[in-house]
Design a protein around this nucleic acid. Structure first.
Lengths: 202, 202
DNA sequence: CAGTGGTAACTTACCCGAGGGTCACTTCAC
DNA sequence: GTGAAGTGACCCTCGGGTAAGTTACCACTG
């Protein structure tokens, strides 16, 4: 990325190798969950051995955190700019979906890291993941509030529920997408647009 | 249940103990996922030790299967009778939700067993879970088809996506519900009715 | 109504393999 | 010869799984 070509020694510069490992880790953690994923398997994926992985990331938690921060950062950033761009409330869901699909077209497992139920209940990972979720939930809450005030507003707990359901919808769309590698981001967005139109008239 | 009072020996008849263990297992598997759950923790929950758990269920997979079959059986049965009762397509989602909430009011983690991503990719559990999911998906697909033909029908892949999103919605509603133990089944159903009315006019 | 055996419920103490984590070493470019 | 990239071989804990024993109740016997 920054340095163009070979750097220190035989294989690959650290920076580049780390990026590979984060990508592989994201896929493996996303697929099997924190508890189910294996460090040696992640190393194997990029054709390297476990000690190197540990030299670069320190621990399983360290690697997970690296993956989580990359995913969480890109996600919150993308959603934030989309939400900031404004527009009518009924258009926001599709715009957000489009942003997510585009950003994570080649990294579809990333989303799952924020909502992994198998991470230990306390510790750095749980804290960081909860923080990203909190930020995303805030956007969802904002969107839900705007949507509901444009209709006959409901009570705040209803809005909370709507926001959570929305994140669940994103979740299931991404799961569905993961199972269909041929479908790219634009096709996915078009499909969602079609569905929302037919189902709700949005 | 069948025998009324004390049976064999000191503690509790096998049948009753097994039921306790299945309940505890369902909660623990639902909370931490198959990979993250611990057999000794499940045993500890009901005040018993691991070997008894193994004597009764044979293996972790055995216990998981017992939990899965209880959950899956009740779920498919409940949804089947609800779907069979008929009605306008737009009313079905709420009726199904109501059935699920009522059935699992005191067993909220059960739903998650069918959709646990941390079970090994092959084996009895994966097969059984996939089977229950297939049956539920068939209902979702049926409901989605009815709904979409009542509007200007979409292509079959869209309907597949809608069905999957629907299960995701159920998923997130149940997660939300788990975090709010005070909310009972009727309150939850009422909330969903209110939301669907305001959001889609259903 | 001892005593005695049978059996179901249950435990203590252990085995073992998988996986997280580490150390000492090698290879290669400069 | 220095230092980064990388490895083989190891340790150790945690958790699934087991063997062998213990406790308490019941059903018999004499």
């Amino acid at each position: 990325m920054t340095e163009s070509r070979p750097v220190g020694t035989k294989g690959m510069p650290r920076e580049e190798r780390e990026a590979q490992l984060v990508v592989a880790g994201t896929e493996e953690f996303g697929r099997a969950g924190y508890a189910g994923a294996s460090m040696v398997e992640i190393a194997r994926r990029v054709g390297v051995t476990k000690p190197l992985l540990y030299q670069y990331f320190g621990s399983k938690d360290g690697l997970y955190l690296a993956c989580l921060h990359r995913a969480g950062g890109r996600l919150t950033e993308g959603v934030a700019t989309t939400m900031a761009s404004g527009g009518e409330p009924e258009r926001m869901p599709l715009k957000v979906l489009s942003a997510i699909f585009t950003t994570f077209d080649h990294d579809r497992y990333a989303w799952r890291l924020l909502r992994d139920a198998t991470v230990p209940g306390s510790g750095d990972i749980a804290t960081a993941a909860a923080d990203y979720r909190r930020r995303l939930d805030a956007f969802a809450l904002l969107g839900a509030t705007q949507l509901m005030t444009s209709r006959g507003l409901a009570d705040p707990v209803d809005i909370e529920a709507i926001a959570q359901v929305w994140t669940g919808v994103v979740d299931s769309l991404i799961s569905w997408w993961i199972d269909r590698p041929d479908e790219d981001a634009t096709a996915m967005t078009a499909r969602c647009a079609r569905i929302m139109d037919r189902l709700f008239g949005w």
